[in-house]
Amino acid sequence: MKSSAWMVISLVIVCLISGGLLARVYLSTKPRIEAQKQFELRQRLIELLPSAKQFNEIIRDTLWIGLDENNRPTGIIFRVAPLGYGGPIPILVALNCDTTINKIYIGSAAEGLKETPGLGYKVRDEEFLNQFINKNYHALSLVRNGGTIQAITGATISSQAVINGIKLGISRFAQYLPVKDSILIKEDTIQSIEADTIK
């Protein structure tokens, strides 16, 4: 009888101690963790669009406008997550004012990339990403479809997904750029890209 009571009490004590400890650690580290995340995001944004001195968040965690020291927009950065082979591919894209791509960044496994290591995971390689620099909307398609992007060997689905995601993002967010007439994408193009992405 005594031992069964002790069984319950000891479990309760251990749970209380661990619960209390966790709450304490969580509360005391939370502000620092948040600050770290913000800091890292800011570093990432600066890396993607070095011409900007300040970033205005237009859509929470999705769209930022970069402003230079005279408060003139120098470009936008947006986040897209097209469906790749293993799951959504987290991509940050920086667009210049003339709608060409300044730089793109693809998140690591820690940031949610689920592509196959050694195959689809190579979308993070410089060799693949550098192909996007200074390209505009119309140049973005795979070489075998008449475009300029060389797909990763054995990972056509992931390569295509990155392209689709970026195109979809450009067509959605280019309207936030100061120069509007350089890119005119009609609603039906957007729909056809969306259909491609789902396929």
Partner: peptide
């Protein structure tokens, strides 16, 4: 159950502290 609570508490603390500091 007690071992598992101890281990997972420990892992979570390591996770938070590492993330913050």
């Amino acid at each position: 159950p007690i071992f598992i609570i101890v281990i997972s508490t420990f892992v979570t603390i390591v996770d938070y502290v590492m993330q913050a500091y």
